[in-house]
Amino acid sequence: MAEPIHITRSLSIDPSEIEESFVRASGPGGQNINKVASAVQLRFNLAANTSLPEPVKRRVASLAGSRLTKDGVIVITANSHRDQPLNRADALERLVALLRAGVFVPKPRIATRPTLASKKRRLDKKTNRSVVKRMRSRPGDSD
C-alpha cells in the first residue's frame, strides 16, 4: 500500500484517488516526440473525495477554474519536461499546491476610507500634473 500524500499536517489524500494517464506531448521535440508518451494527465476526483472537508473542496473548486470538469474532476496536464517521471512529479506537485492553497481561508477584506492626507496628496499630484501639461501648450492658447 502506498503511503498517503500529505497536504498539511492533519490533511492527506490517498494516492489511489489519483489517476494518471500518459499522452504524447505537443510541440517540437525531434524524432522522439512522436513515439514516446511523456506528457502526464493527472485526474483527481474532487467531488467523490471523502478526506477533504466540504469548505476546502469549495475553495479548491473555485481555485481550479477551467481545470475542473463538470463532473468535479480536476485535470492537470504536465508536459514541460521531456522525461515522463519529471512530468509525473510536476503534475503531482501542482495538485498538492492547488490543494494547499484551498486549505487556507482567505482573510476577508475590510473596507476602509481614504485618509485626509492621502486625499490631499492625490489632489496635489493632479494639480502638479495639470501644471506640467499646461506648460507644454503654446503660450497664446490659454490667455
Rank of each mutant, 00 (worst) to 15 (best):
P4Q: 13
F44T: 01
H6D: 04
E93Q: 12
R24F: 05
E3F: 08
T50L: 15
I7N: 00
L68C: 10
L11A: 03
V131F: 03
P139S: 15
T112W: 01
I13F: 05
L123S: 08
F104Y: 08
Q84D: 07
A37T: 11
I7V: 13
S80Q: 13
F104M: 10
K70L: 08
R9A: 10
A61T: 09
S21R: 15
Q41I: 13
N34L: 05
A48K: 12
V60W: 02
A48N: 12
K119M: 11
L11D: 00
D143Q: 11
R138E: 11
G102L: 05
R109F: 10
P108N: 14
Q41M: 07
S12N: 12
S137H: 12
R82V: 04
N45M: 02
G102I: 04
A78K: 06
R43C: 10
V132T: 06
G65E: 02
N45K: 04
N128D: 14
T8R: 03
S62H: 13
E93V: 02
L68M: 10
F22D: 01
R100I: 01
R94L: 10
A37Q: 05
E19T: 12
K119W: 03
P85R: 13
V105K: 14
I33D: 00
R82Y: 02
L98C: 00
L98K: 00
R43S: 10
R94G: 02
K120D: 14
S12E: 14
L42T: 06
N49Y: 00
A39V: 01
A89D: 12
N87I: 06
T69Y: 02
L42C: 04
K70D: 13
G65Q: 05
R129F: 04
R100N: 01
F104N: 09
M1Q: 11
A47R: 10
I110D: 11
V131C: 04
N79D: 14
R129M: 02
R129A: 03
V56A: 10
L63V: 02
V56P: 01
E19V: 10
L99R: 01
D143V: 11
P53M: 09
A25T: 05
L86C: 08
R58Q: 11
R138Y: 08
A117F: 08
L95D: 01
D14W: 04
I18N: 02
K119H: 13
S62L: 10
H81N: 11
I76Q: 06
I18F: 02
K35E: 00
Q31Y: 11
N45Q: 08
D83M: 02
G102M: 03
S51L: 14
Q41W: 00
K125G: 12
G140F: 15
A89Y: 03
R67K: 15
V75P: 02
I18T: 05
P85G: 11
S21L: 15
L116Y: 15
S130N: 12
A61G: 06
R113V: 13
R136V: 03
N32P: 02
T112P: 00
K119D: 05
A2G: 04
S21W: 09
E54S: 03
G27M: 06
N32A: 15
L63Q: 08
R58L: 07
L46H: 01
